[in-house]
């Protein structure tokens, strides 16, 4: 049976060449900005942290749960990455995740990878994080508004990725816009609910056990404050 979130990993051949190349250009531009921004406020700890976090997002996508109707849903993780790592670092991590999935595991093609990274990595993380900040601010600060803001942002990020993919497919003349919108947006409205609940549960779990990590992205550079380095002389 179709695992719906993987509908976002479009293989080669589904986007026409101009669409695929245009999305690559957009993706490269945003990634370049992200790399510069992330480089500004991350220190040398960033490389191991982001590498392991990318593997974490990948592994977290393995957890699945049953949706009535015989299919199963799982986490995409864009908003989660944005909230935990900050928008720029989160975007880079998600791009690496989608890239490795396409390259090594054939979840999505190479030429269409630009569009896939854009839909899942950039819209989900940057856009999702922007929405999260706005809603959290409206609800009176990140401490109070964190969970509802994350829930809404997670749902919207999944839905936005699906709608974007539908438009790209229609532009490529692969499907008609109406059919793509109904199929993608309809499915992902359900999947987005799962994404929202999982993101909220994960965030509240982390808030309950190590709330200091939620402040991670506000941490200033050059403070090696690890659990282990404290024990070492």
């Amino acid at each position: 049976m179709v695992t719906p979130p993987f509908l976002l990993h479009a293989p080669d051949g589904f986007f026409s060449t101009p669409v695929a190349l245009a999305m690559w250009a957009a993706t490269i531009a945003v990634l370049a900005i992200s790399l510069r921004k992330a480089g500004e406020d991350l220190d040398e700890r960033a490389v191991p942290l982001m590498g392991v976090m990318a593997a974490f997002i990948f592994a977290a996508q393995m957890f699945n749960f049953q949706i009535p109707g015989g299919t199963s849903g799982h986490l995409l993780g864009g908003v989660l990455a944005g909230v935990l790592l900050g928008p720029w670092a989160g975007t880079i991590v998600m791009a690496c995740v989608v890239g490795v999935q396409g390259l090594v595991f054939q979840d999505g093609g190479l030429v269409s990878m630009g569009a896939n990274i854009f839909n899942m990595g950039i819209v989900g993380t940057l856009g999702g994080f922007a929405l999260y900040r706005i809603i959290a601010a409206a609800l009176g600060g990140e401490l109070k508004g964190r969970l509802p803001a994350a829930a809404i942002a997670a749902w919207v990020s999944v839905e936005a990725a699906a709608v974007l993919a539908a438009f790209q497919l229609a532009l490529s003349d692969t499907t008609s816009l109406g059919a793509a919108l109904v199929a993608m947006a309809g499915w992902h409205a359900l999947i987005g609910i799962g994404e929202a609940v999982i993101t909220v549960a994960a965030l509240s779990f982390i808030a309950a056990s190590r709330a200091d990590l939620l402040e991670m992205r506000h941490m200033r550079p050059s403070r090696p404050r690890t659990a282990l380095s404290g024990e070492l002389p």
Binding site: T199, A201, A202, F205, S209
Partner: peptide, 17 residues
């Protein structure tokens, strides 16, 4: 079920971190 998965994701995050 989804909140169970969420707790698992949270636990996995802490272990990864």
């Amino acid at each position: 079920q989804a909140s169970v998965v969420g707790n698992m994701v949270g636990a996995l995050f802490l272990r990864s971190y």
